[in-house]
Write a protein that binds this DNA or RNA. Structure first.
Lengths: 201, 201
DNA sequence: CTGTTCCTGTAGTGATCATTCCAGTAAGGT
DNA sequence: ACCTTACTGGAATGATCACTACAGGAACAG
């Protein structure tokens, strides 16, 4: 009763719709994504899409949520023996996620750059999800330099995230770019700066 | 004969169309920008838009070109007495440009994030224009650390640009963010790293 | 006055848009 | 056996899409 079985293939249909929506959306953005295109790519009629999702906006919210999960699974928690190693692993894990699960950031940034008179709910959702990710990083940063000024650490974290986001963009502008090289440099610079913050007190 | 006068108000109409297009495009992206909306916002009929520009794609190319000019005027060349000061001024100049002329990056990044089967010509144009900007920075970087390994300097430049791009994104995600603070940190980190590159040889 | 160039205004074109209606079907519960 | 729930298929709706055809006006050249 409470735990209901799936009668038809609704569960899989939902997945197929989401997969198709991700594909189309990352190709052409929100307005460029037509329900007809999602329908065609998923093999399901528009009415099915509207049975699973209230409207286009809700579909995008679901897509973002879905891709966030994949993103978080891809960025594995670093557990190096030293702080230095842990930071390096975090950096390379993020670099991997850029390859394996780029859709979350790609879609999210598309939405973030828009300035609609009324904000898309998917945009807001993206920002909320990202805050969750940021909190994880904040915990990690405090762990690395417990003695440092919290405000300064926070500022450095903002910078570190911005740099990573920028590297994602750079990869889109130049697919041949060696991200691992840049992420190594990133990790080194951030660790250096963080250690200096710890000593300065 | 060679230098023709404007019979009607074509020159100003073109500007009005571009201004309207920038506004609509930064609100909703490429597919979300309708010629009807540009027409309404500019006060000119669609036929005028199509007289000035071959099609929607060409209009976007022109918009990007126009905003690039504004962007470059806004990022004033730094001429501090020391390298440190020059770098700081470059950083704060870029931060100013983020406020005064954000449309170039906003539109460009929107286009960059898309992955259409056939690339928009405006996207390609954006990448070309950005390369011009990058070359200016490369010249500046070499000037700062002439003794350093050129490949290492180039990598650091890629990182520096990425970080700046990421800060632009961060500003869109959190309009209350203090960019100057982040840019100061950025300039310091980059100068430190560049000096270390110079000494390492 | 005549012709040319530049630009605007009106009124369309067929295609595609998001969304809805609703009848139909397959499976589960009872 | 029958009712309910979960979905699908197809057709339709009115709005909006990029773009065009074309006639006409304003400014200049001769």
């Amino acid at each position: 009763m409470a735990e209901r079985k799936r009668r038809a293939n609704g569960e899989e249909s939902r997945r197929r719709i989401l997969a198709a929506a991700v594909e189309v959306a990352t190709e052409r953005g929100y307005d460029g994504t037509s329900i007809a295109a999602v329908s065609q790519k998923s093999g399901l009629p528009a009415s099915s899409i509207y049975w699973h999702f209230a409207n286009k906006e809700a579909l995008f919210e679901a897509v973002l949520e879905d891709r966030f999960e994949v993103w978080m699974r891809s960025v594995t928690a670093p557990e190096g023996s030293s702080e230095m190693q842990a930071a390096m692993m975090l950096a390379s894990g993020t670099a991997d996620a850029f390859h394996e699960a780029p859709e979350f950031l790609r879609l999210g940034f598309m939405l973030v750059l828009e300035r609609r008179p009324t904000e898309l709910s998917a945009r807001k959702r993206f920002l909320d999800l990202r805050d969750i990710g940021r909190q994880r990083l904040a915990d990690f940063a405090v762990q690395l330099a417990p003695a440092a000024d919290p405000a300064a650490v926070d500022r450095l974290l903002s910078y570190a995230i911005a740099a990573a986001d920028g590297m994602f963009l750079a990869k889109q502008m130049d697919p041949g770019l060696d991200l691992n090289e840049l992420f190594d440099l990133h990790a080194q610079l951030m660790i250096d700066a963080l250690m200096r913050l710890g000593e300065a007190r």
